[in-house]
Each structure stands twice: as structure tokens, then as C-alpha cells.
Simulated assay, not measured.
Amino acid sequence: MVTFTVNAVGCLILGALTGAVTAGAADAHLQLPVGTGFCGTLTTYSTFSYESLRLAQTRARFYAAANVVASIVTGLGAIFLGSTVAQAIWG
């Protein structure tokens, strides 16, 4: 559950950063250190893939599939939400 939450928060931050850059409130050069550096360090997609694989190997295939689907849907939703909120604030 911790991995899921951390990845969702990282996606939210990355979405907000992208929305701020798109709205002109942040410099595009900020995306590299914050987007790649901070969010890349914060998120744990290698752990996510390891946990999903371990679930599948222990015959908990439903939970493995649910983890993958929920993580992808939540991550994309968090990016969209962050970007939308940032553009609404600064756009």
C-alpha cells in the first residue's frame, strides 16, 4: 500500500509541475530536476513491478492484476488531476 501511495503522490506532483509549466507559471528547465530528479527518486516503480510479480508468482494473480490496473489508473488520474489543478490556478 505504501508503494501505491508514493507512486500516486509522485504522479500528482509531476502532473502539477507539467500543468504549471504549460500555464507559464514555472520554467521548463524546472521539469528536469523536479520531474526526473525528485519524482524519479520518490516514485518506486521498480518496487511496484517486483510486488506485482511476487503476487503473480504466489498464485495471487487477481491481486497482481488489480495492483497493476489500479496503479496505472490512479497514476494517470493523479497526473491529470495535478495538471488540471495547476492550470486552473495559474492558467
Rank of each mutant, 00 (worst) to 15 (best):
residue 1 M to L: 09
residue 3 T to P: 00
residue 4 F to C: 09
residue 4 F to I: 06
residue 5 T to F: 13
residue 5 T to R: 09
residue 6 V to A: 12
residue 7 N to M: 12
residue 8 A to M: 11
residue 9 V to F: 07
residue 10 G to S: 10
residue 11 C to H: 04
residue 13 I to Q: 12
residue 14 L to S: 07
residue 14 L to R: 04
residue 15 G to T: 02
residue 20 A to E: 01
residue 22 T to A: 14
residue 22 T to P: 02
residue 23 A to R: 01
residue 24 G to R: 05
residue 25 A to Y: 02
residue 25 A to D: 01
residue 26 A to G: 04
residue 28 A to W: 04
residue 34 V to L: 15
residue 35 G to Y: 05
residue 36 T to F: 07
residue 37 G to C: 12
residue 40 G to Q: 11
residue 41 T to D: 14
residue 44 T to V: 11
residue 45 Y to E: 10
residue 48 F to S: 11
residue 48 F to D: 06
residue 48 F to V: 00
residue 50 Y to S: 13
residue 50 Y to A: 15
residue 51 E to G: 03
residue 55 L to H: 01
residue 57 Q to Y: 01
residue 57 Q to H: 05
residue 61 R to G: 10
residue 63 Y to H: 12
residue 67 N to R: 10
residue 70 A to I: 05
residue 71 S to L: 07
residue 75 G to R: 04
residue 75 G to D: 02
residue 75 G to E: 09
residue 80 F to C: 10
residue 83 S to G: 12
residue 84 T to N: 13
residue 85 V to P: 02
residue 86 A to E: 05
residue 87 Q to K: 15
residue 88 A to H: 07
residue 88 A to M: 11
residue 88 A to E: 12
residue 89 I to T: 09
residue 90 W to F: 15
residue 91 G to L: 03
residue 91 G to W: 01
residue 91 G to E: 07
